Amino acid sequence: MNRTEVPPGTARAVRVGAGDLVRVIDVEGGQVGDVFAFTGSGRELTEHHSAAHTRAGIDRLFPAVGESFVTDRRRPILTLVEDTSPGEHDMLIPACDPARYAALGAPGHRSCAANLREALAEAGMGFTGPIPQPINVFMRIPVGEDGRLSWLTASSRPGDAVTLRAEMDCVIVVSACPQDLVRISDAGLSPLAIETVHNGGNPA
């Protein structure tokens, strides 16, 4: 098992093969994470997880355990195999970006969009397209009966985790979301961790 620490407000990238398990862990509890998944050949990534295509494929806002996330080419890329958290996650909200923080009066603030490109660059990879809508683990954005969205603080506890199985060779990027102007993460920012197990072994 390999473990990669994701410091608060930053992101890290890991490469995994088909059948590998990836566990995203909320180390201290209450921290939202943006998860991105890409596939492609060489240094340039060309295909990515798509929230919209996943919702269309599963007929729900977020996969249940045993269901898959798919790419913009409608191919399964990750399957949710275990969730020890309260099970509140999101695929409606885009990654925070410089324009979001400028609108909130905080230009220059770190963002998940910038974190993604930094993490890929540090790993020697590039993605030139628009930032994909992420898998927002531990993020609570319930939809009311009137269709309005509520921005609630994450309820995940220390050590809570989601475990994903890679359905193809891919690159996973996890950003410990730096959003501290809207209180989606509890009690400030805290780290996440990525555990990977090759060939579908048990990450415990």
Results as ranks from 00 to 15, higher is better:
Glu88Leu: 12
Arg23Ala: 09
His53Thr: 12
Ser111Glu: 00
Glu122Lys: 14
Asp59Glu: 08
Arg110Tyr: 00
Glu122Phe: 09
Leu78Phe: 11
Ile131Arg: 00
Glu118Tyr: 06
Tyr101Gly: 07
Asp90Glu: 11
Phe36Trp: 15
Leu45Met: 12
Val65Ser: 09
Phe38Trp: 12
Thr84Asn: 09
Ala64Met: 12
Leu45Pro: 03
Pro130Tyr: 11
Pro130Asn: 11
Pro134His: 08
Ala113His: 04
Ala52Gly: 10
Val16Ala: 08
His48Arg: 12
Leu80Gln: 05
Phe36Gln: 02
Gly57His: 07
Ala37Thr: 04
Pro76Phe: 02
Ser68Leu: 10
Gly126Phe: 13
Ile135Ala: 08
Ala95Gly: 10
Tyr101Met: 11
Arg73Asn: 05
Arg100Gly: 12
Ile58Arg: 04
Glu47Trp: 13
Leu80Tyr: 02
Gly42Cys: 08
Ala56His: 08
Met91Ala: 14
Arg23Cys: 09
Asp97Glu: 10
Ser68Asp: 10
Arg60Cys: 08
Glu118Pro: 01
Glu82Asp: 14
Arg100Tyr: 15
Gly129Phe: 14
Leu78Arg: 02
Val22Ile: 11
Arg43Glu: 09
Ala99Glu: 11
Gly33Ala: 15
Gly87Arg: 02
Gly87Lys: 01
Val32Thr: 06
Ala123Ser: 15
Asp20Met: 04
Ala95Ser: 13
Arg100Ile: 13
Ile25Glu: 00
Gly42Phe: 05
His109Pro: 02
Glu122Tyr: 10
Asp72Cys: 11
Gly124Thr: 13
Gln133Asp: 14
Ala102Lys: 14
Phe69Ile: 08
Ile131Gly: 02
